[in-house]
Amino acid sequence: MFPSAPPFLDVQLGSAPPDHVVVDENGGKADPNTVKGGEPQVFPLTVQVDDETKAQDDDGNDLRVRLSTDVLFALNKADLTAKAEAALKDVAAKIDQSAGTTVKIDGHTDNSGNDAINDPLSERRAQAVKAALERLVTREGINYQVQGHGSKDPIATNENEEGRRVNRRVTVLFPKPEPPSAPPAPPAAAPTPAADGKLPVLGTAPSGDPPDVLKGEWPAQAEVRINEVRRDRNGFVSLVWTLRNNDDQPLNAWTSSHDYSGVYAEASTSQAAIVSGSLRYRAVRDSVNKVTLGPYLLVTPMDDYMVEKGEEYTLWAMFKLPPEVKTANVHIPGFQPVQNIKVG
């Protein structure tokens, strides 16, 4: 992977001895076999999947299901709504599939109100979810640990409504169930380039509703072209798309591309999504810095990401999809969904 280019998938590793490499501007060289490098930084990755009631974060070891309290409860109440039953049945089924014996349930609010209201409210809501899961989970021997945090542990910003909505949650954490065994996937086939050397086009869509931060500043005459949706042997999917502007209004590819809730770090392509049925697969991010696996637009010159009339700009992001997802819709902010794109 390179910061400014789409990723290369399933690259074969060779065994040839490394050549000496240039290490300074004067042409000095070093032998990679003898020079000691710094310790590698290894960050676990988080795969997020959303539906209308919850978001699920998978870090490879645990599942963290963030249930929206806007769906589970009425305003300032701790009694579960009718819609809560289906969401909690899904969580209970995953707990039944898990081998873990501890389930942590944490209630959270946004920063509206004060601690005297938020702290007990978050505790009562977490207890309500615990009572429902004790009824729905069929496996015995589970220890439920419950705590209310009020507004003290936000995962998103409280400076806008989207961030506050994300912060209003009850989180259920438990060890990830073992996935069913499946034969290893074959290496992904590289897309066939067009005869003119341009990127292939799998589907297109015109401008749609402008991103919230760019209302009144979004080109009406623009399109998105999906160039690649390709899966590697480990289930990671490379999504590549090109923005084409045919309008006098410049297209701001940076401001429109990232998620402003605060769940993701700014300045990348975290707002793109791959949608299959009721599930919305979000871009993979690292679990420490919340950085999307995509281009780092913060260091991109403005002349590049401000797409003028007649210009194009190519972006990318990495996802992880289950093997059963063969066809999906691609949602790029500011454009209508691109329908029925095959996952190669």
Score class of each variant (00 low, 15 high):
215 K>C: 07
174 F>V: 00
155 I>A: 06
164 R>K: 15
162 E>Q: 15
160 N>W: 06
192 T>M: 09
147 Q>S: 08
214 L>R: 07
196 D>G: 04
181 S>H: 08
152 K>G: 08
210 P>L: 04
195 A>G: 05
150 G>K: 09
175 P>R: 03
152 K>L: 10
206 P>D: 00
206 P>A: 00
151 S>F: 13
190 A>R: 10
154 P>L: 12
202 L>V: 04
187 P>I: 09
192 T>S: 14
212 D>V: 11
208 G>K: 02
154 P>G: 07
145 Q>W: 04
162 E>A: 15
189 A>F: 05
178 E>A: 15
206 P>L: 02
150 G>I: 03
183 P>D: 08
210 P>I: 00
148 G>W: 13
155 I>S: 02
155 I>L: 13
145 Q>H: 00
199 L>N: 12
153 D>N: 08
188 A>W: 11
182 A>N: 08
154 P>W: 09
211 P>Q: 04
184 P>K: 07
190 A>I: 08
204 T>D: 01
148 G>F: 06
154 P>M: 11
155 I>T: 10
158 N>L: 00
205 A>P: 05
175 P>W: 04
181 S>C: 05
181 S>K: 15
166 V>E: 13
203 G>V: 07
207 S>F: 03
158 N>C: 02
179 P>S: 11
190 A>E: 14
150 G>T: 04
212 D>W: 03
183 P>H: 01
161 E>V: 10
205 A>E: 01
178 E>M: 14
157 T>E: 04
179 P>A: 08
163 G>N: 08
212 D>P: 07
183 P>G: 02
208 G>Y: 02
168 R>S: 12
201 V>W: 11
198 K>C: 06
213 V>W: 00
179 P>Q: 11
178 E>F: 09
192 T>A: 11
177 P>D: 12
215 K>V: 13
157 T>S: 15
149 H>D: 12
210 P>E: 05
173 L>A: 08
171 T>C: 01
176 K>V: 01
208 G>C: 02
198 K>N: 14
159 E>F: 05
213 V>N: 12
195 A>Q: 11
199 L>Y: 10
213 V>M: 09
171 T>M: 08
170 V>N: 07
198 K>H: 13
212 D>Y: 12
177 P>S: 14
148 G>N: 06
167 N>E: 14
166 V>G: 06
201 V>H: 03
145 Q>L: 13
148 G>I: 12
168 R>W: 10
214 L>T: 04
156 A>Y: 07
189 A>K: 15
186 P>W: 04
154 P>F: 12
152 K>Q: 15
181 S>G: 10
167 N>P: 05
193 P>M: 05
207 S>P: 03
162 E>F: 15
178 E>S: 15
165 R>G: 14
194 A>H: 06
162 E>C: 05
176 K>H: 01
193 P>Y: 01
188 A>I: 11
190 A>L: 11
200 P>C: 04
214 L>W: 03
149 H>V: 02
153 D>G: 01
171 T>W: 01
215 K>T: 14
164 R>E: 12
168 R>N: 10
182 A>K: 11
202 L>K: 09
188 A>D: 05
168 R>Q: 11
158 N>V: 01
213 V>Y: 01
188 A>Q: 09
201 V>N: 10
194 A>N: 14
190 A>M: 15
187 P>T: 02
188 A>M: 14
209 D>A: 13
178 E>R: 13
191 P>K: 06
162 E>I: 09
213 V>E: 02
170 V>A: 03
174 F>C: 03
211 P>K: 00
